[in-house]
Amino acid sequence: MLRYVLRRLALLVPMAFIISIVVFVAMRMIPVDPGELVLGPWATAEQRELARQKLGLDQSIPVQYLRYVTTAFQGDLGRSIKSGKEVTELIRATVPNSLMLGGTALALAYLIAIPLGVVAAVRQNTLVDQGAMGFALIGISIPNFWLGLLLVLVFAVNLRWLPATGSGTAAHLILPAVTLGLQYTAIVARMTRSSVLEVLRQDFVRTLHAKGLRRGRIIYMHVLKNAVIPVISLLGLHIGGVVGGAVIVETIFAWPGMGALLVNSIIARDYPIVQAVLTLLGVAVLLANLLADVLYAAADRRIKM
């Protein structure tokens, strides 16, 4: 297992390079006027040329990439073209926020979804099941921005229990995490339900009953542990998605995370940021998948690594 993990980690290095090259080349394919990026729309032709030189865009793409990589290895990812902030600093400022928001959302989602899915499965075709799955259906179909604004309206504007936007305290985290978490709650609850139903059909459950175990123990120890294994593999996908894909939630709640940073930077063609954030996200997704695989193997000893 350790060897497997090390091998996968070693593979991350070339993968990170490939991601960074793809991003680098893609960013340079987009039509863009660097002069305008740096100077705004009223830059003169000579200022535009100066800006091109300053950004190194007068060089060939391989040369530009090499330059980028060498400075990157010295810990310098360049500066944001738009705000002038160092990219490393921006990443340092947004990554913890994204992890906090994404982590809370996912934790919330899994903590709610798994019991919900189990209860729905155990009480299959009852009102409880229909209620839970109706909730899940709503969770999947409600658009993020709509839910976000609704929650803000109810809990921030009308009830004034929670702040509408911003970050800094635990109270700030609640609404965005719930908004972001809901669709994951829905997906995971449905997945858990079908997984539990499948496990319940398996022979060993009858054995457990024949042994005279309590129903609670059978469901919450044996069935649950078996049922969450496929759910874990979903987690790998979700970790990647929740960090990079929180753009809408970050925008609604003015949450200073990586998603909004990335999208705004793509729109503004702020490529030092796009380059760094996309590469980082790529690596994060790979790491998340590795983590999911390791968890998967730890939960199910039949998986050989």
Binding site: F204, H209, A210, K211, G212, I229, D300
Partner: peptide
């Protein structure tokens, strides 16, 4: 439940699937 596994017990046909694979 209290009687099962205690005063009466049952062995099933399929040993391959009758045990919980993750315990």
């Amino acid at each position: 439940r209290r009687l099962r596994g205690d005063r009466m017990a049952m062995v099933f046909q399929e040993p391959m699937t009758s045990l919980d694979p993750v315990f």
